[in-house]
Design a protein around this nucleic acid. Sequence first.
DNA 1: GGATTAAATGAATGTCGTTCATTTACTGCT
DNA 2: AGCAGTAAATGAACGACATTCATTTAATCC
Lengths: 220, 220
Amino acid sequence: MSHPAPVPPTRRRAGRPASGVLDRALIARAALDLVTDQGYSKLTMSAVASSLGVSPSALYNHVGSKQELLQWVQEIVMDDVDHSWFATHPLDEALVRWAHTYRDVFADHAPLIPLIAVLPVSDSPRLLEMYEAVTGGFVRAGWPPESIVPAIVALESFIFGSALDATAPADIFDPGEHAGTVPRFEDALAAQRATGADNADAAFAVGLQAMVAGLLASRV
Amino acid sequence: MSHPAPVPPTRRRAGRPASGVLDRALIARAALDLVTDQGYSKLTMSAVASSLGVSPSALYNHVGSKQELLQWVQEIVMDDVDHSWFATHPLDEALVRWAHTYRDVFADHAPLIPLIAVLPVSDSPRLLEMYEAVTGGFVRAGWPPESIVPAIVALESFIFGSALDATAPADIFDPGEHAGTVPRFEDALAAQRATGADNADAAFAVGLQAMVAGLLASRV
DNA sequence: GGATTAAATGAATGTCGTTCATTTACTGCT
DNA sequence: AGCAGTAAATGAACGACATTCATTTAATCC
């Protein structure tokens, strides 16, 4: 999981080092590793710098801001979203596969969601590549062009929301001190709990099914 | 919109003031006003304090943290979500009404989304009240109890995702420098644009229709 | 080989949320 | 009425952070 920390035992003296110490790939990788084993709350510029054996200000020779660094992380992480099925499978199956991998990736990277939801795609070639693949799936299924983007955005919205939801504690719906004041909700909750299924997972599965079916049925 | 700033012209001296200066309602209101006319980026404890004519540390006699203050804002804002139709209208109509108001509210309060998506409902009586109303709608429509909570969560996930999406700039999908590399996507984009409809709004409408129809059709 | 540029250090800055010692007034008890 | 305890202000201070800047050193370009 985590890479060998390339912290040199001897302190580097000021001035440009003989061999390049940093570059975009190294910094992005260090950030991702940090996130992977310590979470986003520990992702600070200082922490990234120290894991690279470098002072924080050195990073700014390569990256403009922490925001930009987060975009680099997003780019890497995006690789785990599988859009390959759009070229080979029926649209509904491809959508389900895509949505599941997409949601799983961002459930592990929830803090990126508010970022990516608002990020211009031109800043992220891989995002663009993904959209091209997904669009291809709709086109091959015979969808009218003007309905494709809204359908993708609707699915993505559900995916992002579900990824956020997946990070919530399991007992989030426990009425606590207000028990008894919301009887129907408590019934429904108990019945759901009795199924043994994880609530977030069940909601995602059922919602995805519903939306895909609903979209394909209407093909507005 | 914004209330008269109750900043006293004369500086208060240290020590407990004769008449209560702060309370929960005042602080929450000040925060909401600040957000309403300056946005979340300007919502700092200092700004809230100064709009109340008080020093920042004074707030901490009433609120435990900024997080908690955000929860107070969320509670107020939640009032604009309309769940009244669940008692009076067919389930599908009530869901659409509810979802629209819910999404509109949080489109104006996007920074609250990551908070509420993970907030224990026991911390928010109004949230709980809303769930009771929504659950009532499903019950009256004859839904099996164990399917209700997942359906609500699925809809909520879509709503939160759509609210985030609504805050994105309109030209977010412009391929920019990568124009030409994603032809099918660019076609779809152009066709959508030609409809004249706002993309986020179209996506929300079509996604909501699809999910509601899909859910009601399956009633898992 | 000299000028320019790139890339490091380390000190410094500014913004925030939050804590703490201190002061003052309200409240409850006897 | 008087006193103890608590509540609610002030203002100074702290600790994280992201970010900037002056300085130093090495690579690169002409």
